[in-house]
Design a binder for these strands. Structure first.
Length: 135
DNA sequence: GCCAACGTTGGC
DNA sequence: GCCAACGTTGGC
């Protein structure tokens, strides 16, 4: 089972919004590298939900409930979307500063390439972050 | 609000 | 097909 990280500005769509909605179509990704990752997501894969701009922390875990399909918000039909559902909020959100300060996370894709909105997380990185979150 | 990183666009 | 110009994202 692969693991991933997605970013969202909480002003636009927060983890609380996802909990309220029960599930949501993760669309609007317009970057090829991010789109490749969306296409690689499998049903049941778990995803860290990160708040960008405000919060700057991983705040919850979500899961893939529908694999990649054509993004309904892309008229050109070039990009894909997936559907995500909430799993659980993290007891202690893990901030970007915390992740940067942990040598075990030095290779984390979202740190290496900060603008990437969908990125892979290795099993070791996943375990490290959940441990930091007290989960 | 600024700026660095990076992707995309368009002229040649 | 190269590369400069420009737009966007996201941390600070």
């Amino acid at each position: 089972m692969a693991h991933w990280l997605v970013k969202s500005e909480p002003n636009t769509y927060s983890f609380a919004d996802l909990q309220r909605d029960g599930k949501t179509v993760w669309d609007g990704v317009r970057n090829n590298a991010a789109a490749l990752h969306l296409k690689a997501m499998k049903l049941g894969d778990e995803v860290l939900f990160y708040h960008s701009q405000e919060g700057l922390a991983v705040v919850g875990v979500a899961k893939v409930v529908e694999e990649a399909f054509l993004d309904p918000s892309d008229p050109a039909g070039r990009f894909v979307a997936v559907e995500l559902a909430p799993v659980r909020p993290l007891p202690n959100p893990v901030t970007l500063a915390d992740m940067k300060a942990n040598p075990a996370l030095a290779g984390l894709e979202m740190i290496r390439q900060s603008r990437l909105s969908v990125s892979p997380v290795s099993d070791d990185q996943w375990a490290t972050i959940l441990k930091m979150a007290g989960a």
